[in-house]
Amino acid sequence: MRNEIAFYLVAAFTVAFAIAAMTLRDLVHCALCAAGAFAGLAMLYLQLDAEFVGFAQLLVYVGAIAVLILFAVLLTRGDEVRPGRAAPARSWWMGAGAAALVLAAIAAPILLSPSLEGGAPGAASAPVRRIGEELMTRYVLPLELVGVLLTGALLGAVVIAMREEPRTEDKAGGIPPRFTPTPGNPANPR
């Protein structure tokens, strides 16, 4: 019973933060609310006895991804919808409508499926030692691949986000301009 109450509380917390993250106007608030939703999901994992996954979720999502999003928000400032102007409503309502359809499509089978009924959880646990052993034996190839992928992503992110070096001939002209619109690709006027 206590677990059940805890579940509903955490679920409400998570959903509230997720909705806030998707609807608030200020991007910083959105990012912080997303961090809250991620933390709520971590709590749900902990409730489901997946201790290691819960802490990994907290470490990666709240500690890294949320901060990354905040940095991106700050580095692309001056771009938010100005407070006075209402956000264009059409695409928003289309998105919400499509999402409602998807929800109905997913929820109906879940609620109607007889095989999902009842199913009390057995005594499951994922001790860290087991996870480590599995990672080093059965899942060693995926683990290596993820390592390669993360290294690639790290390098890729640095290369993409790095400011392009001004060419040597540009350097003669003193301080390089903040960004140079190429001919055929004019920058949007603010």
Binding site: M22, M94, A98, L103
Partner: peptide
């Protein structure tokens, strides 16, 4: 669906 609505809308 919340994520979907945000991503689309």
């Amino acid at each position: 669906c919340i994520g979907f609505a945000g991503a689309v809308g």
